[in-house]
Design a protein around this nucleic acid. Structure first.
Lengths: 148, 148
DNA sequence: TATTGTTATACTCTATAACTATA
DNA sequence: TATAGTTATAGAGTATAACAATA
């Protein structure tokens, strides 16, 4: 029955939202305890794992307007976690690059973050996680493809 | 291997976040097209489905401080979607109650919202959705129980 | 002309604290 | 005293637009 199918989709949305919210409450608290908001963590993690990035590309990946990127990068730079590096070949471009201090910080932070996530998900077996990954991947990709 | 297990949990977190984000981009856009932000939709939906509520209880359910509730309720009241109703038995209490106009609005909006969600999830079969629901429910509840 | 990043500005949402009125 | 809601205020985070430097 159509109406039942719709209720099922709504139900899936609700449990997905609740699970996501429950996880994020914990991770956001963890970020905050370490002086970061989620956006700042995202930027730092990007630089930590993917290396220096032009500010504009950071904006694209984190989905932030150029003026807002300046604001976020300023804050992280003031704390010494990253530095601005001019691009020699195109002097309009500025890279953000994680510093030694930023790297050390993330060496500490990121494994803890992973560990927290792991603990939060300990109710599922490894097989169940694989199932969930497959289902959510399929779901997420299909929505991206719809590209509303 | 422990490290592989942690990577698996991280992977689950990433696909969960992406799926959630993809869905929410669509629903939030839909809300915005209808002049609402997610908080306002949540309040309206609560009143629509659960009936009149004391302002404080709305705050508890939506997780919003009392001053912020006043702000949100003010906006929805100005647009005519709800009205404040004094509690006769305890004159400190004010209920928010959805109006005729608000109800009509939601009669239109909510089914569309459900339909959108349903379409967004059409990549999964009904069986897959049931699996996903079971897994995410288990995950979400277990995290709530951890109550960090 | 187009693009990168910065500056200046404004807006939305939320929180906090002081307050009023009830209980 | 304690509670419900309001008011006033402040802050974080984001967006927008105008701008300077460079391509």
């Amino acid at each position: 029955m159509k109406s039942e199918d719709i209720k099922q989709s709504l139900k899936l949305y609700i449990v997905l939202s609740r699970a996501h919210k429950a996880i994020n409450e914990v991770t956001h608290q963890f970020f905050q305890n370490n002086g970061l908001n989620p956006t700042e963590f995202a930027v730092l993690e990007l630089l930590y794992h993917k290396g220096r990035q032009p500010l504009q590309q950071i904006g694209n990946k984190i989905l932030l307007a150029s003026g807002s990127i300046t604001y976020v990068i300023d804050k992280l730079e003031k704390r010494g976690y990253l530095s601005r590096v001019s691009c020699p070949s195109d002097r309009r471009v500025t890279y953000a690059e994680i510093t030694e201090a930023g790297s050390t910080f993330m060496d500490e932070l990121f494994p803890k973050h992973e560990q927290h996530l792991h603990e939060l998900m300990s109710a599922l077996t490894s097989e169940e996680k694989d199932e969930a990954i497959a289902l959510l991947k399929k779901l997420g990709l299909s929505i991206k493809d719809l590209s509303y």
